[in-house]
Amino acid sequence: MAVDSTAEGAASSAARVSTDGGVPANADSQGDSGQADPPVDSIVGTADDGIVRELGHDDFDPVGTLVLVLIYMAILIGMWVFMYFVEFLGRGLTVVG
């Protein structure tokens, strides 16, 4: 358990996603009596029900994230240059002493 920072085991994680890439095995560990399996995403926090494949640490490169943050940085730099050199330095009555 020393590796587990959220105090829940890796075993339970594996149990929640079927290994054949098919239907998630989420509801079967629940003790719900007389309740049908909820439809996908029906209650808060059930995104796991829609998992179709499990990606481990080595299978995942966050390339989409890299694209997003690079777009963000381009916006930041463009806006900064505009705000500093046009909006700010372009104004009258600047404090010079």
């Binding site: 700010f88 104004r91 009258g92 009555l93 600047t94 404090v95």
Partner: peptide, 9 residues
């Protein structure tokens, strides 16, 4: 506060 409106003062 002392602001000269629309300027950097």
């Amino acid at each position: 506060g002392f602001e000269v409106v629309g300027t950097n003062a």
